[in-house]
């Protein structure tokens, strides 16, 4: 074989191998790109949608849930009510650390089953200490244990929320009833909010949630418990799909000791107002200036 011919042959072989390598390596990216939903990709922010556009999006989410999870659900957009500002209080004298609240949250909010996700973490604390360094979430024995008290922690719906401040795309914001929500269809998954939250209140969907069809809660809110897409952040919304309709949060209903008190801070006759006015309440990490709407108190 002469020199130039060999060189040409080498170049052809090299180019073929190179093109093959590119095609092979790039295939997963290409497949992912092909799976991206164009309507979802191009839609605008929740606050910019007209009523019609929002209605269409809700129907689309219902259809997709049907296709992906094989179950018929109803996804609603439930706006905040005028004259309502939610607050939550937890009686640490009554909490026995049974974690029924965390379990109720898991089911109500359509959490991923294999990871047993929940918006509530219950800490077993050492009597005589407020220091969480001496607490643990990994307790596995009969409760309540002697010498311990229990402190469930969930989103505090802060009025000065660090998570809302840091979001680069306004995918999370505070509603007028005080609830901090996430538009799962706008979040870019940077997880800056997760780093910013001092209460470990946010979760990321490290993969698409897995839930058996018969366990899916079909009553869903667009900004709350609809099944979240992969790659976005989620959080507790005080069960706004329930509470904005006058129901109580699922965690409160599940509590066997009545340790949880929820209500409208603007209603002088509400039980949450009674607690705030008559008990010595405190908030977690008050020194950070986050101004939580979630209060703790002891009553004995």
């Amino acid at each position: 074989m002469s020199g130039p011919t060999r060189r040409v042959a080498l170049k052809v072989v090299g180019a073929t191998l190179g093109a093959g390598a590119f095609a092979y390596a790039g295939r997963p990216v290409a497949q992912w790109a092909a799976s991206v939903d164009i309507d979802d990709l191009l839609r605008r922010h929740y606050k910019e949608l007209t009523a019609d556009e929002l209605a269409q999006i809700l129907r689309r989410i219902e259809d997709e849930t049907q296709k992906k999870y094989g179950v018929e659900v109803r996804v609603e957009d439930i706006p905040a009510q005028d004259g309502v500002s939610f607050g939550y209080a937890l009686n640490l004298s009554l909490c026995i650390g049974c974690r029924k609240c965390a379990e109720a949250c898991h089911h109500e909010n359509n959490h991923d089953r294999p990871t047993n996700n929940s918006y509530i973490r219950v800490l077993e604390m050492q009597q005589g200490s407020f220091d969480m360094e001496h607490g643990t979430v990994d307790y596995d024995h009969a409760v309540p244990a002697p010498g311990k008290y229990y402190m469930p922690v969930q989103c505090h719906q802060c009025d000065n929320a660090p998570c809302v401040k840091v979001c680069p795309v306004e995918a999370t914001w505070k509603e007028k009833d005080g609830i901090v929500v996430v538009d799962y269809s706008w979040c870019i998954g940077c997880r800056y909010c997760e780093a910013a939250c001092p209460y470990h209140a946010r979760r990321f969907n490290w993969r698409a949630p897995e839930i058996p069809a018969d366990e899916i809660n079909p009553d869903q809110g667009y900004l709350s418990n609809r099944i979240r897409p992969q790659g976005v952040v989620e959080k507790c919304t005080f069960c706004l799909h329930r509470t904005r309709k006058g129901l109580l949060p699922a965690c409160l209903e599940a509590c066997p000791t009545g340790a949880r008190v929820f209500g409208n801070l603007l209603d002088p006759a509400s039980s949450i107002r009674y607690v705030l006015e008559h008990k010595r309440v405190y908030v977690l990490k008050e020194e950070l200036g986050t101004r939580p709407r979630f209060f703790y108190f002891f009553d004995k």
Partner: peptide, 10 residues
């Protein structure tokens, strides 16, 4: 990024 497809949001 969890959702690089939504990069344009930023």
């Amino acid at each position: 990024m969890g959702r690089p497809d939504r990069m344009w949001h930023i």
